[in-house]
Design a protein around this nucleic acid. Structure first.
Lengths: 328, 328
DNA sequence: ACGTCCTTGTCAAAGGTTTGCACAGATTCT
DNA sequence: AGAATCTGTGCAAACCTTTGACAAGGACGT
């Protein structure tokens, strides 16, 4: 049943076509060196034998591999699966396989899988929002890196640039009449969280609006639920959450306390990953993770050793979780 | 900056330790053949040089590789990410990398990635609910397969066995007083869908309860939303949906039509992937995808060429989307 | 007629590892 | 004491491919 036959090698094809091994190899790897007639015959035999070059042998001698790695803290986050899908769409065109590893934000696992992937990959797309900069530098000695959603001097990176969108969202709220707004943070060590907190804080200062910075969270749904009490205690009329998961949790938490969104409190998220699932639909900011994934892989495969940071502009998505405050 | 140094080889270690290449190789691959003293010295030198055996070279000669593939129709489904995480937890212990491919249910892509993975993997965990049996057989010639959530004679497989749980759920509904119940199908060609439809149909017959079988869907959230109208038209008091995504869509669709769950209609899902996000919490059936992933990988790595199908028993999760019918 | 160049194809080395076989020395058995 | 066994190590082939060097043969210019 599972009698798998040994795959054909260059040698098999060469013998069957009556030419030398190197001739067959060149038919595929350096076309033009071989006469059209020979080439045709070889190709025909090769496809009859279902020949396909042995990746290991090829990699061994060329020193490169047809794979890339994708290392993320939590693959179950829809932001990441979207990114993965986009990454695959690009890599498939170059018959490049993708290794995926979920690190659970553990520095040990990150290190371990990067080492493992280093040998078998052209490079690694690394999303490690909480990893120390020095640790990242260390890993980049091991294998070419493209960073996602964080910027480290000297290492290429692609990130969702949501600063403008967040300012726009903030301005929206203020225009609707909100004067006390809270920011519900994600993981304190996360690069993105720092960016977003800073953007919102700056904007609040610029518009002279009061901003309440709630306690840092781990970014789980339950953290959002738990934050509802604090939100009510501070008496804010709008909350900008670090991401959609927290925002959804907050909506649920408020509901449990008998409050309604957006009537009692307006809530915004980030990443646009829960558009359909939550009620009311979340006003949020697109994550553009597909574009980020696409660019990250392209960057890795291009091989151009550019080391700048590329930001992908996010945009505002207005849904039903925001409205003017009741007292306005 | 990105000056990566050539990794150490057996040769380097051998020279530095003053022994032959094969001795160094044996220190790592067939321990016991080498004297403790030599072994100690070699290990010391090796770790000083940060030696780690070249995977390509090793695979080339042994004919096996330290990777496995995971091929799924849609990686963004939480069932699959949970499965992936569990799979990785197992494979990591054996320093086995995981290739991931999302096929979008395209037979072409499935074939393509399986071929690609075949060369570089010990085997592939394949979830292809709609692929034809003959096609699966063909692929299993190419590379060792473990099937997920479908059973094909002669090929090892692991699946969530939710038949008992679905019967229990059905009985619950009947006991609560429901007498007209609908089944909201997923993709018609899906193995799981057939199983679930059959289970529910049989149970309805056994209990002499009326079962309405709604039109097949593609399984998207929007399909669930759209199905709300049909549900009302048929005047059922409870709907068992193919999975949680459809169930969530249906809840949303009913809400848009001014109906409430569970007051007007009870709804159940399958897989338990949206527990926190949907309101009201869905009564559903656990997917056990972590257990499925764990077993699938273990099966692949064990190498024992068993070819049976292993079912993982699902259990009922009661939440707030089910209640006695209003008229009861 | 001879040297030059081009085309087409072959030879052989290289890449890093595993492993069957051989060999030397030490130990045990008869 | 000599043979048989065992232990520890080295040699070299093999896995399959790529690629630089090179050879044979034809076309061409002088």
């Amino acid at each position: 049943m599972s009698a798998r036959t040994r795959p054909a090698t260059l040698k098999d094809v060469a013998e069957a076509a009556g030419v030398s091994i190197s001739t067959v190899s060149r038919v595929f790897s350096s076309p033009g060196r071989i006469s059209p007639e020979t080439s045709r015959r070889v190709r025909e035999v090769a496809s009859r034998l279902r020949f396909s070059p042995n990746v290991m042998a090829r990699s061994l001698i060329t020193g490169t591999s047809p794979n890339i790695g994708l290392v993320v803290p939590d693959i179950s986050n829809p932001y990441m699966t979207t990114l993965l899908k986009a990454a695959q769409r690009v890599s498939r065109l170059q018959s490049t396989g993708i290794f995926v590893a979920d690190t659970d934000d553990s520095a040990d696992i990150e290190r371990e899988v990067c080492e493992q992937f280093a040998q078998q990959s052209r490079g690694v797309v690394l999303c490690a929002p909480r990893m120390s900069t020095s640790h990242i530098r260390e890993i980049s000695q091991l294998v070419p890196l493209v960073l996602v959603n964080r910027v480290v001097e000297g290492i290429p990176s692609i990130y969702t640039d949501s600063r403008a969108a967040l300012r726009e969202l903030f301005d929206d709220l203020v225009e609707q009449g909100h004067r006390r707004i809270a920011y519900l943070p994600g993981p304190a060590a996360s690069w993105s969280n720092k960016q977003r907190a800073r953007t919102v804080t700056d904007r609040a200062k610029a518009l002279d609006v009061e901003l309440v910075r709630l306690d840092p969270t781990e970014g789980f749904h339950a953290d959002g639920v738990a934050a509802a009490a604090a939100v009510l205690k501070h008496g804010v009329t709008a909350v900008m959450a670090f991401d959609d998961v927290l925002a959804a949790g907050l909506v649920e938490g408020l509901r449990r306390l008998g409050k309604s969104v957006p009537d009692d409190v307006s809530v915004t998220g980030h990443d646009d990953i829960l558009s359909e699932l939550v009620h009311p639909g979340l006003t949020t900011v697109t994550g553009q993770s597909d574009r980020v994934g696409q660019l990250a892989v392209a960057r890795l495969l291009d091989g151009s050793d550019s080391d700048g940071a590329v930001g992908v502009k996010a945009t505002v998505v207005r849904r039903l979780s925001t409205a003017p405050p009741r007292t306005a």
